[in-house]
Design a binder for these strands. Structure first.
Length: 151
DNA sequence: GCCAACGTTGGC
DNA sequence: GCCAACGTTGGC
């Protein structure tokens, strides 16, 4: 089993949205590196730290689980969607997504600021300079530590 | 709103 | 294949 961190802007899709819907597709990734991870490496049963970015308090806010492995992101085919891409077609899809299910909302979100003060987290990708990927793998240790801190 | 750090695009 | 210009991400 693998562990991941997924970033989202809470104004477009938050942990509360996921809690309410119970399960949702993780669409809109339009970056090849992230696409490759979604298509090839994110597996059913993998655990996900749900992270809010571009907001007042950037923070890890909960846990989700992958319930469906990579399949074509159909929102790319729809020119009225948030992230249309006319180059991607049903016959030759470019972009992929997975489905995730809500597991837990942290009672104590772990802010980016706090993470920087925790030495065991220093080698996490999120804290490194120039990190712009919307999802990336994290170690089991990091996953467990964030889960405990968030509780 | 600013800006650093990327990724992507397109001319050559 | 190089590289400048441009667009995006995301913290602050």
């Amino acid at each position: 089993m693998n562990y991941w961190l997924f970033k989202t802007e809470p104004t477009s899709f938050s942990i509360d949205d996921l809690k309410r819907k119970k399960r949702e597709h993780w669409d809109g990734v339009r970056n090849y590196q992230a696409r490759n991870l979604l298509r090839d490496d994110v597996k059913k049963g993998d655990q996900v730290i749900f992270y809010h970015s571009s907001c007042n308090v950037p923070a890890a806010v909960g846990i989700a689980e992958v319930v469906k492995e990579g399949y074509p992101d159909f929102t790319a085919f729809d020119k009225n969607s948030e992230h249309p891409d006319p180059k991607s077609t049903k016959e030759r899809p470019i972009w992929y997504m997975v489905d995730i299910a809500f597991k837990k909302k942290f009672s104590k979100p772990v802010s980016l600021h706090d993470m920087r003060t925790i030495s065991q987290l220093h080698d996490m990708r999120l804290l490194q300079k120039g990190n712009r990927l919307s999802l990336f793998p994290i170690s089991q240790k990091h996953f467990e530590l964030l889960s405990e801190l968030g509780a």
